[in-house]
């Protein structure tokens, strides 16, 4: 299975990098909304099946290691 985990700051948390990219877009006259969010993607493969137990383990991994649950949210995609 291929797993892609997307991590980004929670909606209410300031993202300095996103803000900087937003300002740069505006100074290039790119017609973007200035509220840019820069997150990260973690990709990996694992053996096994997409079961509820597996998703539970994956959630734990995301909470304990891949994201900082105090300030970040995550979501993931699983493909075969």
């Amino acid at each position: 299975m291929n797993i892609r985990v997307f991590v980004n700051y929670k909606k209410n948390v300031l993202d300095p990098q996103g803000e900087a990219v937003g300002r740069a877009m505006q100074s290039l006259n790119f017609p973007a909304h200035p509220h840019v969010r820069v997150g990260k993607t973690i990709e990996f493969t694992v053996d096994g099946q997409d079961t509820p137990e597996f998703r539970k383990t994956l959630d734990k991994l995301c909470n304990d290691l891949l994201s900082n649950p105090v300030i970040e949210d995550y979501r993931y995609e699983i493909s075969q």
């Binding site: 929670k10 948390v13 105090v70 300030i71």
Partner: peptide, 10 residues
């Protein structure tokens, strides 16, 4: 949780 602020030194 919302009581955590994030700083931007730059």
């Amino acid at each position: 949780r919302p009581a955590v602020q994030k700083g931007d030194p730059f």
